[in-house]
Amino acid sequence: MFARRSALASSLHGASQRFAGLAAKVVIAERHPLSILQVSAFATTIPDTEQALFNALGLPVAAANQFSGDSQLSLRSIAPGVWQLVGEVSHTAHAEQLRQTLQGIATVVDISHGRTALQISGLCSAKTIAKFCGLDLDPAKFSTGSSTQTRFGHIAMTLSRLDDAPTFEILVFRGYAQHVFETLVEGAAEFGLRIEQ
């Protein structure tokens, strides 16, 4: 069986050796492999799609720029009528099943290989991300459960706050993964950094 090879396969180990900081205020880890499905409703089928998603997944559809669920499986409302289903469990069966359930009311596209997910946690995680992202990351403004399309420097990313530790998750095109990872690592270095494999 072919094994899934992350876009960061050649970078993570070296970086984790360089930055094994004891007093780390930023911890970076990759979430891999993930299953990511993009579900897009049509103009007139948003309520039907929301209902169908709830029936199929048991997850309510969250308000705009929020997600429901947890790290096992979360449903992110990232645009009007567009959701990303992100989970650790393989959802290949899910994809086909979901496609059939949503036949005629929404499309389902598997982008599991197309994104790299980085988890950033620690006291200075928000400060690090704030070097590259113009969103207000104050917990009052971007609370746990938030998930939104924004930018990391010039690169499009989906940014989520997974918990109050705080733990953030960044999703970017896998093609930019190494660039984003290197940039993030350099930005976190001044705060003390640890990279977990």
Binding site: Q38, S40, F42, A43, T45, G104, T107, V109, D110, I111, S112, H113, G114, R115, F173, R174, G175
Partner: peptide, 16 residues
């Protein structure tokens, strides 16, 4: 054409 029931999603990165 917002009435078209159709979506275009980039999968450039999804496939090698």
């Amino acid at each position: 054409w917002p009435e078209l029931r159709c979506h275009a999603v980039s999968v450039t990165e999804q496939f090698a």
